[in-house]
Design a protein around this nucleic acid. Structure first.
Length: 841
DNA sequence: TAGTTGGGTTTTTTT
DNA sequence: AACCCAACTA
């Protein structure tokens, strides 16, 4: 029995079809990594292919490492000679060897987004571009798209000369590119584009790689952009042994240039391609798969397919709605705890919590800390983007590449050396007019007017860098970093900068040092890399993805964005923030591009299919977004899942452990809600709700999408699962609140014990009733600023339930004003002002 | 030159 | 809420 007998027939076909173009359409969880690894093993073991002739391109360095490991385990030899890497790493490797052929120095620096922005700032200044009107970021993203499409500055300018903005971008692109070259730097997109440029310029070099890479495999092919497509096309042009693996339903990187047509049109480009579909899923239960299939079926531009499994139905998909993002976060942490207690075989690492945006991790993190659940967050502020790490890296880059002006300028006054902006500006002007680098200009100080006062400081700095260069030539990177820290007294600088964060920052620096150490160890082992170099370390550092740093053996819950979760799987998955405007994002809903929403749906599909056994979808009625309370309807992606697959379908009434309003002083919430609500009869037809303070009522009033101005655009698109807005109110709320023009009150049954959702017509944010806002604010942690009550001690006030009374005291609490009232009939009560909604009489 | 403050803005997602 | 920048002050 061979290792290939464990494959199903389609997988086997994919492994055995070694020659010619092959397209493997691999649904989520269909074992595509197994196919690729077995294919590599088969090529080496059965076809006698030299591992050196095999290239496998993966999406992340982590995936590359895992793939190499798995091949090793399969055949136990030779896997280290297979070239497994990401597009970007592969390109850097090629460019380090050959980029001098197209006018760069081989010691080039890789600029990340922060460097790009710093450089673009200079470009805009030079070109007098008003960055208020046209931000650096927008220019950079336009340039990035151009590079993804392999458009040179010249070609971009030819294509885009109609309006002023486009001409400005064209000019900026041209100068930006010149300055990059002057700094001897490449940005991320250049890595791909310059490789194509190199291959086109030097047929001999291309031929060399074509001869080497006789068998090419590309994973996650649906997320390749035009530049990557071209690289693959060029490399495979000789042998035509190209095997691409992907799933059009999981294409989620359009924003960075991914072109879904690369996979959809593969058969057009390679008419003789063998197409293999892997539709059996080995990961998830049938209920989870059915949910995923139901959601993705709403996309129109896709290759039809349907995942199936021979696993049983499993648990239903869990759906939970909460009052606030905070409640959602505590539920997730507590539920994980509950699962762990219930099933002792479970580990923390069996859980993942996914969200659409990094900003959502904050509340989750808080709640995990509070509940002592160990967790790891993937991404957010990239480790290498932290101030202290960047400072040190800029020193290293200055040592490594004297032409990198951006790095020199970053550190010339860090820690403070008394070198100010004016001085830096003068040196820069000189450097520019004399066509020398900024650093070299430091040796011509006598010729630069107006820097005499700072001359000593500048010379000291220059000499310091020179001494570091000297030191670096005979010492290890680890020692170099330590020397920089020591000589600049960097730790004290951090303490002076911010006492509170200094310890964390020092930890980060130590981590950087240990990364340098392990880089040097790895590079010593890897013969092909040519040993450890400073440039090599900087390049490693520049190309790591957040997910690369995740240690699978760490027994912690993983928190990450849906994007980061691609390619991973977990027994238990929580998808949080399943709300309209959040997921699908506001951006996609307002986009003119129809595919934007489909891409969000693919993202939902990716999220759902990460789950093996249990999937929990969560949403919150109210959530702080960018410092403002927002009220969202349940995500359409939840509504697209058939009710019978959900344990608690939206609108059916259910209970949630944490959403319990029995707490002391915890009055029922009331909310002003706008946004889309689920269609279907969930709320219509006299669904009963209970008003705050005891009364009961039912949903009444209903406004069609057409009445609703701007929002109707996203509503009116048709199709199932679209929302309808209801106006509603509890018994206490008056009719006038329900039907006004832009009113969009919604009552949602959130809990069978729900006493109330108080609904106000939405007018404008300026006119939002302060009290409603304060009331909800208090639901969420960290919102101390509640509206100050308009009554004072001694005033007579009226309460909806308790009647009238006299205010005994008003005390500012952590969240809200705490008011003590002696009611004429009900006696003394203490309540929060925002919830109590006392009216002065 | 350095540090503070107030105002305006806001990539969702990342190699 | 967090960030960035310009303007202001010491």
């Amino acid at each position: 029995m061979s290792i290939y007998d464990t494959l199903n027939s389609e997988q086997k076909r994919a492994v055995l079809q070694t020659d010619g173009p092959v397209l493997i359409l691999a649904g989520a969880g269909s074992g595509k990594t197994r196919v690729i690894t077995h294919r590599i093993a088969y090529l080496m073991e059965e076809c006698g292919v030299n591992p050196w002739n095999i290239l496998a391109i993966t999406f992340t360095n982590k995936a590359a490492g895992e793939m190499r490991e798995r091949v090793d385990r399969l055949i136990g030899f030779g896997a280290e000679s297979v070239w497994v890497s990401t597009f970007h790493s592969m390109c850097v490797r090629i460019l380090r060897r050959h980029i001098d052929a197209i006018g760069y120095d081989n010691r080039f620096t890789i600029y990340d987004t922060d460097d790009q922005k710093a450089l673009m700032k200079q470009v805009c200044k030079e070109l007098n571009i008003d960055t208020k009107q046209l931000r650096e970021r927008s220019i950079l993203s336009a340039i990035s798209s151009a590079k993804d499409e392999l458009l040179t500055p010249l070609r971009y300018q030819e294509k885009h000369q109609m309006d002023f903005i486009e001409r400005q971008i064209g000019d900026a692109y041209e100068l930006y590119q010149k300055m990059l070259q002057k700094n001897n730097a490449l940005d991320f997109d250049d890595l791909l584009m310059k490789t194509v440029e190199l291959f086109n310029a030097r047929e001999d070099i291309l031929k060399n790689y074509q001869d080497r890479f006789r068998y090419i495999m590309v994973d996650e092919y649906q997320d390749t952009n035009t530049a990557q497509f071209e690289i693959v096309r060029l490399l495979a042009a000789g042998s035509r042994n190209l095997c691409v693996v992907g799933d059009d339903d999981q294409s989620i990187y359009k924003f960075r240039g991914a072109n879904i047509r690369n996979i959809l049109d593969f058969e057009k480009v390679y008419p003789d391609a063998t197409v293999i579909r892997l539709e059996q899923n080995y990961r998830s239960t049938q209920n989870i798969l059915d949910a995923a299939n139901a959601v993705i079926a709403n996309n129109r531009n896709r290759k039809a397919k349907k995942l199936w499994t021979d696993r049983g139905p499993g648990n239903k998909v869990h759906f939970r709605q909460f009052r606030s993002g905070r409640d959602e976060a505590s539920y997730v942490a507590e539920d994980i705890d509950r699962c762990m207690r219930q099933d002792h075989k479970l580990h923390y690492r069996d859980f993942a919590v996914l969200y659409r945006t990094n900003a959502q991790s904050r509340q989750l993190e808080d709640s995990f800390v509070q509940n002592s659940v160990p967790y790891n967050i993937v991404g957010g502020t990239n480790f290498y983007a932290r101030m202290e790490v960047r400072d040190l890296l800029s020193y290293l880059r200055t040592v490594s590449n004297g032409l990198d002006d951006i790095s020199v300028q970053r550190i010339i006054n860090v820690p403070k050396r008394g070198i100010g902006e004016t001085t830096i500006g003068r040196i820069q002007d000189y450097a520019q007019s004399h066509e020398v680098s900024f650093f070299d200009a430091l040796s011509d100080l006598d010729e630069i007017s107006g820097v005499a006062k700072a001359k000593k400081k500048l010379t000291d700095f220059r000499d310091f860098i020179l001494s570091l260069r000297d030191f670096a030539s005979t010492n290890r990177i680890e020692e170099l970093i330590k020397k920089i820290i020591r000589d600049t007294d960097y730790e004290n600088y951090l303490r002076a900068y911010d006492e509170l964060t200094a310890d964390d920052r020092i930890d980060n620096i130590n981590e950087l040092i240990s990364k340098a150490v392990s880089y040097e160890e790895d590079a010593l082992e890897d013969e092909e890399s040519g040993g450890p170099t400073l440039a090599g370390f900087l390049e490693d550092v520049a190309l790591v993805a957040d997910i690369d740093n995740v240690d699978g053996d760490d027994d912690r819950v993983l928190l990450m964005t849906l994007h980061s979760a691609k390619g991973l799987e977990f027994p238990h998955v929580y998808l949080t923030g399943m709300e309209e405007d959040l997921f699908p994002s506001y951006m996609s809903l307002n986009s003119t591009d129809e595919d934007a929403l489909e891409e969000e749906r693919r993202l939902a599909y990716v999220g759902i299919t990460r789950a093996k056994d249990d999937l929990t979808l969560c949403c919150a009625s109210a959530r702080m977004v960018r410092g403002e309370m927002q009220y969202h309807a349940i995500s359409r992606f939840v509504m697209e899942i058939p009710e019978n697959l959900l344990d608690c379908p939206p609108g059916k009434g259910y209970s949630v452990d944490t959403a319990d309003w029995e707490d002391e002083d915890d009055e029922p919430p009331f909310a002003e809600i706008h946004g889309r609500m689920p269609a279907s009869g969930a709320l219509g037809g006299g669904y009963d709700v209970f008003a705050p303070y005891g009364g009961s009522g039912s949903v009444y009033g209903r406004k069609s999408a057409a009445d609703r101005g701007k929002e109707s655009s996203s509503l009116g698109a048709g199709g199932r699962g679209q929302g309808t807005s209801y106006s509603a109110g509890g018994a206490h709320s008056s009719r006038e609140e329900s039907g006004t023009g832009s009113g969009r009150g919604v009552v949602h049954p959130h809990d069978t014990r729900l006493k109330a959702v108080y609904v106000k017509p939405h007018t404008s944010s300026a006119k939002k009733p302060a009290i409603a806002k304060a009331g909800l604010s208090a639901l969420s942690k960290g919102m101390p600023e509640a509206a100050k009550p308009d009554y004072e001690v001694g005033d007579r006030v009226a309460h909806v339930k308790y009647g009238s009374g006299t205010v005994l005291s008003i005390e500012k609490g952590p969240r809200d004003y705490k008011v003590k009232v002696m009611f004429d009939e009900a006696g003394q009560k203490i309540m929060y002002a925002a919830f109590a909604k006392l009216r002065k009489i």
